[in-house]
């Protein structure tokens, strides 16, 4: 009996070690090594296709920081990310509250419907929206009686991509908020109801503060993903008209896989890495400070 238990324990121990080893190797190969390589590559004139790897110190960073297109792309990225995150939160929370409301029927169907764009491939969605935005036969101009060349007008191109991105992604926030709402303690709501709190007061003083960790989670994950967004740009505008829809990840893609300047692309990636890191830390700091003052 003892021998069997010992044998079982050894099996579990081996499986545990093997799993941990697998995870370590996986992250080592696909996370730690690429990050190290990007750091090292950012200081080299690097084209892996012809084994070019010459040390250039901080030249790539100097080139990037003096390139007006980098700053333009950075501005566009910030505009794109913050606007998309804002509407993702507003729409996601609004719809989650509606779905959670007692009077709403067909909750499961709506939940599925709202989540559907999120699981649809971005490439397919981008193509469909390109057709919707087409100035000749696009549905959007026809339905709203507009005459806008959405993707070829610098004034509208980036907002048009943002609208598409919000449409595609709000379902994610809805589902996360729904999970958050379901986990809120009911006794607090009962107490508020006994005290005669209105719906608005309940939302402002109970729901919203209690959903803070959920909101923070959505903001951080969304910001990280939007700072790295480029597929919709690549398909819908290729950064145009001119360079008006260049975002930082599209510029990195362009440098690496069109011009094969992996050194410059790595320098941009490191800067982006730093910016995302700072934003995340700031977000944590702001939230924890507000939490402690209450």
């Amino acid at each position: 009996m003892k021998l069997e238990t010992k044998k079982n324990n050894t099996k579990i121990f081996t499986l545990k070690n093997l799993t941990i080893l697998f995870i370590i190797v996986y992250f080592g190969i696909f996370l730690v090594y690429p990050i190290y390589k990007a750091f090292a590559g950012s200081m080299h004139d690097w084209n892996p296709l012809i084994d070019q790897y010459d040390f250039v110190g901080l030249d790539n960073f100097k080139y990037v920081l003096s390139n007006p297109l980098f700053w333009k792309s950075m501005n566009n990225t910030i505009f794109f990310s913050f606007l998309s995150v804002f509407f993702r939160i507003v729409l996601g929370l609004g719809l989650a509250l509606l779905l959670e409301a007692k009077i709403t029927k067909f909750k499961s169907s709506f939940r599925g419907m709202f989540y559907m764009p999120t699981i649809t491939p971005l490439v397919a969605v981008s193509f469909v929206w390109m057709w919707l935005y087409n100035p000749q036969f696009g549905l959007i101009n026809k339905v709203f009686g507009l005459d806008i060349n959405w993707l070829k007008d610098a004034q509208y191109a980036l907002p048009a991509i943002i609208i598409m991105t919000i449409w595609k992604d709000f379902g994610y926030a809805t589902v996360i908020y729904l999970a958050g709402l379901m986990g809120l303690p009911q006794d607090v709501y009962e107490a508020a109801s006994i005290d005669g709190a209105s719906k608005m007061q309940t939302f402002k003083n109970i729901t919203w503060p209690l959903l803070k960790p959920t909101t923070l989670f959505i903001i951080i994950t969304s910001l990280i993903s939007y700072f790295q967004a480029y597929i919709q740009i690549l398909i819908m505008t290729e950064g145009g008209p001119g360079t008006s829809t260049y975002v930082i990840s599209y510029l990195i893609f362009d440098e690496a896989f069109v011009d094969y300047n992996f050194g410059v692309a790595s320098a941009m990636s490191i800067l982006l890495f730093g910016i995302i890191g700072i934003l995340t830390l700031l977000m944590f700091k702001v939230t924890s400070e507000r939490g402690s003052t209450k």
């Binding site: 070829k152 610098a154 145009g240 008209p241 001119g242 069109v258 011009d259």
Partner: peptide
């Protein structure tokens, strides 16, 4: 020739035509 000659010329033409530069 390097790709920039065509890609940049396209961007310039778009800037003139679409962006009114």
């Amino acid at each position: 020739f390097p790709a920039t000659v065509e890609t940049t010329a396209t961007q310039v033409m778009e800037d003139i035509l679409y962006n009114g530069k």
